[in-house]
Write a protein that binds this DNA or RNA. Structure first.
Lengths: 107, 107
DNA sequence: CTATCATTTAACTATATGGTTGAACGAACG
DNA sequence: CGTTCGTTCAACCATATAGTTAAATGATAG
């Protein structure tokens, strides 16, 4: 399994911030402009613009210009990379659950 | 779906560092002491100790004392939280794959 | 009870992050 | 072409992070 270090660094660093996770969740429901996103946070537009840039650098979103607006779309591939990273550990917690199951059956 | 903000912050922030991801991978193969871990990094023991503390705060590992040594074990539950977070997006990239599949079939 | 091994803490440095405000830029409208 | 709308950039501030070295602490072995 090849670890794509830089990508994972940026992806996980992006996800470590609750504002960015929230932006991601909102964008997942449908394309939004940067100011659409900024509505609903008690934070300057510039701050939101920065967050969006962080998400873009991590390739978690894509921006495209539509007239004056910058439209932001979810780009799920990067999340898939994060998921692939976790994949290698998945069996470990599943194993733990199986042990728990067996204990419960024994009662 | 309830987002456990603080936990995810700590978990993802932990995973954003390649040294910590590596420590996690090594610990996953079996319990190691802090100095066992430190062997193999060109970094002071104190630095490794800090990384281990970050992982501990995120509940990604558990430390227990065994004599002089602090033994470090993987605690998969926190990784499971990260996985649950990604769960909500999983269908999005699966959808994307399905579309790709259909395109390939058409040829 | 002191020497030694394993680890942590303290103090410090450098850089990164997350926020602010104000100015600048790019695109469209009249 | 000047104004306005949407966004970014620049400069700045406060705090956090990742590392260092040196000193302190914990736990065992003699």
């Amino acid at each position: 399994m090849v670890e794509r270090t830089i990508e994972l660094n940026d992806i996980f660093a992006s996800l470590a911030d609750p504002t960015r996770r929230d932006i991601l969740a909102r964008v997942a429901r449908g394309e939004l402009s940067v100011s659409d996103i900024a509505n609903g946070y008690d934070m300057s537009l510039a701050a939101i613009s920065k967050h969006v840039n962080v998400l873009e650098r991590a390739k978690l979103i894509i921006k495209r210009r539509e007239g004056k607006k910058q439209m932001v779309t979810l780009a799920p591939d990067a999340l898939m990379s994060a998921d692939e990273y976790l994949e290698q550990y998945r069996q470990m917690w599943e194993q733990k659950f199986n042990k728990l199951d067996e204990l419960l059956k024994e009662e």
